[in-house]
Design a protein around this nucleic acid. Structure first.
Lengths: 342, 342
DNA sequence: ATTAGCACTCGATAACATAGAGTGCTAACA
DNA sequence: TGTTAGCACTCTATGTTATCGAGTGCTAAT
């Protein structure tokens, strides 16, 4: 039922619609592509494709538009993949990435590259500290009432946070406490650190001075604080170049979506596939993105998922380009991170 | 020429327009306010006010709209000032602010308060590290190729940055170098640190090992890196609730403005007045904000301007509320910072 | 199986009419 | 002299109607 010719026509409709954003009619198709058949024949085929659910008609006298099911078939079966050209992929920037120490910055630059190459909006979820193991804790006194806690994890996350144990601590004591904490906490998973530590210390807990106890509880507090969802964005304005978002209400609701960190995070973290995940329009669970598509990749160190990169655009998205770009960039980042922290 | 009655009418026009966003006609005025004069008389007065340039007519058969000059008069001469009610000003949040150690977080929370109380967009410029004096530098080794530099300034700015001197350093050496750097750099202004240090060290420069030299140069680099413009925003979406931004092009150009950190920064730092600065529509130099108004306050420590807080909205802004809110919040922050770092 | 021909549908655009809010001016009035 | 009712006039916003054109499905001929 889905013969060669129907597929070709479907592909033409999809590619044309992705390019022009206008419903595609039989005459346009026969003019623009060389099928060697007349518009009337194309019309018959299109009627079939509509029956099969791959395209829809916005209204009786309009051309056809791909349905989500149509995009899905296209993505799964016959979407052409491109190799990004060296001219476009700015190797200078990629080299620069090599030089950056902090994951957050690497992500931010990657988003810039992703959004500029695709013209959609790029989203990243920064690595969650709670999935990591502690490598080093350092206390630095700031003044009579404040200290900085610097936390370094085994996978290269660096966080700082200010705590206020209500007691004065000089530089020496800070160092001593740092050493103590490092001994006790080194290698513990941040997620379980509280229970683990209490277990470890249970024997000697009574010997701890009130001072250290206060600092430890402050450090715990700062771990929680530092652990909130960190979402990075780039190319938000790109969306407004698409006619889909000429409607102020649509634009507003898209911006609103990007402001809801919680929802965005849930949305993106639901893709845990090996490789890329593509979700198209109504395939998304959340109402807010039922007319968007997402192409999402994870980034890992040592096979544990650290965080996510995603590109979001209208369902009429140039899947071909997006998938190609995302594949290459996420591959690059994977290598980068694993070289760095292995 | 500007008698009592004209002023009253002007005030009514401005307040009505701020509230309704619709041009105000003579009949509306005489119905809504009790001037004790007929619409015809009001019309005569309005014609005069237009001649004087305080109001304009969008077109012949429309009511009047305040001009920028009109808003200016209103703001300078007869705008009522409000005291924010305790119910609105969330003292719990303000108390929470007391507990926060880092300026950046204080700013972010303040923006939230500002934007929620005013329904406009709030902007903050984070303190520039180059205007501060170094208080403490701490090096922390991460792994064989990376170190963290933590920089603390006298006015409470804390920055961290990753450097990669290409040599291995253990924790002890890091501490020794930290101590060395602290001795040499303590109290120096970040702006002049390079020249100052070279001067100080000129005698002993030859004795420095290549190692320390490399680290110093990396620390300098990280100072530059950490010194880029940091802008915080809150309530960006608020703007879309105003009919002024129902036009997608307007909305787009407003969002674009907020993305141009450089321009925003120049715009806001141009207000160095004692107290609040109000700039109305065409008074702004930059084309991009000719139909916006800004209410800007500086925040200081010890009489040196550290950074800026600003509220941006359409020229039809509720100046009365904005000025009141901004006055109280910026006063609060001023006290907070000076208690903290004095 | 393909296609030319044709009647039909429906959105988009333009042309036109109308209502209503507001003005300025004039003349009458206190 | 200041105030006001009355009125003609202006201009936008809104609604109505007509028209155009792209596209369809169906039929009948190839």
């Amino acid at each position: 039922m889905l013969n060669e010719r129907k597929l070709k026509i479907l592909q033409a409709i999809i590619q044309d619609y992705i390019e022009t954003a206008a419903p595609v009619g039989s005459r346009t198709l026969s003019k623009r592509y060389n099928f060697g058949i007349s518009p009337a024949t194309i019309r018959n085929e299109m009627a079939d494709l509509e029956d099969l659910g791959f395209i829809v008609q916005p209204h009786t006298s309009a051309g056809r538009v791909p349905s989500d099911k149509g995009y899905r078939l296209y993505v799964d079966q016959f979407m052409p993949l491109k190799k990004i050209k060296a001219v476009e992929l700015d190797y200078l920037v990629l080299d620069l990435l090599q030089e950056i120490g902090e994951i957050e910055q690497i992500l931010q630059y990657s988003l810039r590259i992703l959004s500029q190459l695709t013209n959609y909006t790029a989203i990243a979820l920064a690595p969650q500290i709670k999935e990591s193991k502690l490598k080093h804790v350092q206390l630095i006194p700031v003044d009579s009432s404040q200290m900085i806690v610097v936390i370094i994890t085994d996978n290269g996350i660096i966080k700082k946070s200010v705590i206020k144990p209500n007691c004065e601590i000089d530089e020496n004591s800070a160092q001593i406490i740092s050493n103590f904490l490092n001994n006790e906490l080194h290698g513990l998973s941040v997620k379980n650190i509280k229970t683990d530590l209490i277990e470890t210390l249970s024997g000697e807990f009574v010997y701890l001075s009130g001072l250290i106890e206060r600092i430890i509880s402050e450090v715990f507090r700062s771990l929680d604080e530092v652990n909130n969802i960190d979402i990075f964005l780039d190319g938000v304005m790109n969306m407004f170049n698409f006619p889909e978002y000429n409607d102020i209400l649509k634009a507003k609701s898209f911006l609103k979506l990007l402001e809801e960190k919680e929802l965005l995070s849930n949305l993106i973290t639901s893709f845990e596939n090996e490789g890329l995940s593509i979700s198209i329009g109504s395939e998304n669970v959340y109402e807010e993105v039922k007319d968007c598509s997402l192409v999402t990749a994870t980034y890992k160190i040592d096979d544990t998922v650290l965080g996510w990169l995603s590109i979001i655009g209208p369902t009429r998205m140039d899947y071909s380009t997006v998938v190609s770009v995302m594949t290459q960039i996420s591959e690059f980042i994977k290598e980068l991170l694993n070289n760095k922290y292995k």
